[in-house]
Design a binder for these strands. Structure first.
Lengths: 230, 230
DNA sequence: CTAAAAGTAGACGGTCGGTCTATTTTGGAG
DNA sequence: CTCCAAAATAGACCGACCGTCTACTTTTAG
């Protein structure tokens, strides 16, 4: 029989999230954890979340395992219980990010309450606010790793390319809908424009971080939409 | 009196450049070098050149002094004779790159043998071939450092911003000329478009490196010019 | 001849990533 | 109830490498 008090004890020093801020009170317990705690804790997920913060802010190479671990209060010795290597960890983080981002994209681009082109604007607006909210410290993980690709394990390259392709397909679909509604010239090359969109997007995110301003992103959206063939 | 043979001796083990390839036969001599050798050698310039290779390929943080030094045969101990810190070295490299790039830009954008818009295309073509020639291993130093900016000494940020501004001004001038020739709508916002150009350009370079293909760059140029207001 | 200038040698302390063994605690089989 | 396996933490250890600094060597100038 496990009392409520005991359960409390098993969890009381774990890190906790308040909205977007990470508060870590650290100090895990040794030994195999009580069964009840297992599902509600999941150090693996916390590591991925912490890794996401670090990797989007300073990249893979510059991210030290120690700091990622410290933030969630998981000791170094445990890392290799959860992940077989830093490389494997990186893939887990990247995968998590890609899923998160794909969902956000879909939630914008499939929202039939708006016209297709407006949906793309909505997405940019949404992402822009996310970047500003983090004081321009966080970029796009895929873009970040893309820039690092020559110094990363080769296994990352194809994954990054594939993620861009999947994002591109989503934008291309949306552009195709725009054609059907007459927002976009019927003979426009949707796939090409979609590729162009992401290329410029990554540039704009990078520039916004550099200048710590949303201006490059705003300008980008403005001129991108203006340049679309009517 | 210094014989030709002696001069030869003083230089014979220094690194030498054949076109773009760096061949290093290393092993410097100790002690103050003979005066005759001084001007023709210039380890400082060689360090900057080697640094340029490394920084454009793998970034500032990931670049190890050891490797930069080894390539030009300058021992580690000498580094701090030539530069006061890695940060100062980075600035020297960045400065050298900005100069080099500004010259290339001018040579394209001020070439009245072509129409203003064609000059921009020529620049892209030129830069594209440079990237391909290095097997997509080298990016744009300014773009690279821009992505790293949060993990770099703060002194880099304003310099990077200023470099982008200077490039932007050059493109804006060229666009203005395009207006005069009627290649561009007279009410177009040249400065805005110029900013857009560089934002997209950096994204395209990054993507080309990731995919090891010029396709993103080609596509970028194509859609950028198509989108320009006539 | 000598002292300063010019440049080299390499040690040093620090950090980081990846691994390994020991230890602790719980779950489950008998 | 006992005892071993499973789940996880503790943290030392190693090799690599990073940026800096001090001591040394050789030349030049006067």
């Amino acid at each position: 029989m496990i009392s409520a008090g005991f359960l409390q004890f098993a969890l009381y020093r774990r890190s906790v999230y308040y909205r977007d801020m990470t508060i870590s009170t650290i100090k895990p317990r040794r030994g195999r954890p009580p069964k009840a705690a297992a599902k509600s804790h999941d150090a693996r997920a916390e590591l991925i979340r912490s890794g996401l913060e670090h990797l989007t802010e300073i990249g893979f190479t510059a991210s030290g395992l120690d700091k990622i671990l410290k933030k969630v209060g998981v000791p170094k010795g445990s890392f290799y219980f959860y992940f077989s290597s830093k490389e494997a960890f990186g893939h887990a983080v990247l995968n998590s990010y890609a899923n998160y981002f794909a969902k956000k994209l879909d939630s914008c681009l499939l929202d039939t309450a708006y016209s297709p082109l407006q949906r793309i604007c909505n997405f940019v607006e949404d992402a822009k606010q996310g970047i500003a909210k983090h004081q321009f410290k966080r970029g796009c993980l895929v873009g970040n790793l893309g820039q690092e690709v020559d110094v990363l394990p080769e296994s990352f390259r194809p994954v990054l390319v594939a993620i861009f392709e999947s994002w591109q397909a989503r934008i291309a679909n949306c552009l195709h809908e725009a054609q059907l509604v007459g927002e976009l010239s019927a003979d426009a090359d949707c796939a090409g424009i979609a590729e162009f969109f992401w290329v410029g997007w990554e540039g704009a995110v990078s520039r916004s971080r550099l200048e710590r301003s949303t201006r490059p992103l705003d300008r980008y959206l403005e001129l991108f939409t203006q340049g679309l063939p009517k």
